[in-house]
Amino acid sequence: MAGLGSPVRTLRSLVRELRYVSAQAGRPYRDTAAYRYLREAFRAHRVTSEKLCRAQHELHFQAATYLCLLRSVRQHLALHQEYHAKGERSTEEAAGLVGLKLPQQPGGKGWDS
């Protein structure tokens, strides 16, 4: 069985991701269908006397997978916009990316005047 940690923690992280999502839409996350669905699903599976409840494990795995999806999409989009969404870089930017600077030429480079 997969080590997923505690279900409460997964739910909390999921709510945080939903908050990021609905902050962009400009309305409270509690109004979203995703939040209502998750809350109901977690509530329905909260009480169990069995040591390892199969349905509960399935739900938790699904929630962890969804959390991974939301989080990875957010992180991927952030990197995409930082590095890949603005078209080709100028020579200065490309040099700066690897920690270099273009040389200074006080008299001009000879061909740009």
């Binding site: 399935e58 795995f61 699904q62 997978t65 969804y66 991974c68 999806l69 990875s72 999409v73 992180q75 991927h76 990197l79 995409h80 930082e82 590095y83 890949h84 990316l97």
Partner: peptide, 23 residues
């Protein structure tokens, strides 16, 4: 960051989406 992490997050997102979809 712009190569390894970029690939990692994309692969995670795609894999998670496919798994969730199948389930």
């Amino acid at each position: 960051e712009w190569a390894h992490d970029y690939d990692l997050y994309e692969l995670r997102a795609r894999t998670a989406a496919g798994t969730l979809f199948a389930h």
